[in-house]
Nucleic acid binder design. Structure first.
Lengths: 90, 90
DNA sequence: TAGTTATTTAAGTATTTAACTAAATAATAC
DNA sequence: GTATTATTTAGTTAAATACTTAAATAACTA
């Protein structure tokens, strides 16, 4: 989760997640959506992978990226604790 | 939401939110939980407030901080889109 | 009034982050 | 084999971040 919060703090990485919500994409396809060099996108993808927000899957010379939803579920549980509990007010 | 993601990326700020989950606290009480100067905590509180993750409420010479749950709810909705939808796989 | 306490603001510094270009790796095609 | 394409790694730099101490602000107390 620690890495996920860091990963989610960058707007480019959040936009990559939005793209992957629609369908799986290669690193190259992802980079086409941004005015940014491929190495920069590759670095963002690396961080998203480290945070377990995406999977990567090499198919020949292409690397397909897809969403890994488990951390999103953890994030929901985490946020729920702040609204549901609402311990006794003093 | 943009500011919230940034605010949540720091472990100290997440720990502050955990403290406030239990009960409302003054800036001074919050700073006692950390090996960090009061100005540093004050700065973190400022960012949490800008991100609308906390409210502040001056009572005499003390400033009480409390959770603002609205952004947590937005965060849950945001995360839900990544798991629930799961558009058609190609 | 002056003195104390609670908190924030200002200014400076060290670390981290996000970008770039150039080079390396790996798979495909000829 | 060489050439081409897809992607990552390495090295560099500029900007953002997180901390510090010192000073400012504001409220309370004697």
């Amino acid at each position: 989760m620690k890495d996920a919060f860091k990963a989610l703090s960058d707007p480019t990485r959040r936009e990559i997640l939005n793209l992957l919500k629609e369908k799986d994409l290669t690193a190259g396809e992802i980079s086409e959506h941004f005015n940014m060099s491929k190495p920069s996108i590759s670095q963002h993808l690396k961080l998203l992978k480290q945070a377990e927000l995406v999977f990567d899957n090499k198919q020949g010379q292409f690397v397909y990226y897809s969403l890994n939803t488990t951390v999103f579920q953890e994030l929901i549980s985490w946020a729920m604790h702040f609204i549901e509990k609402g311990g006794q007010k003093k």
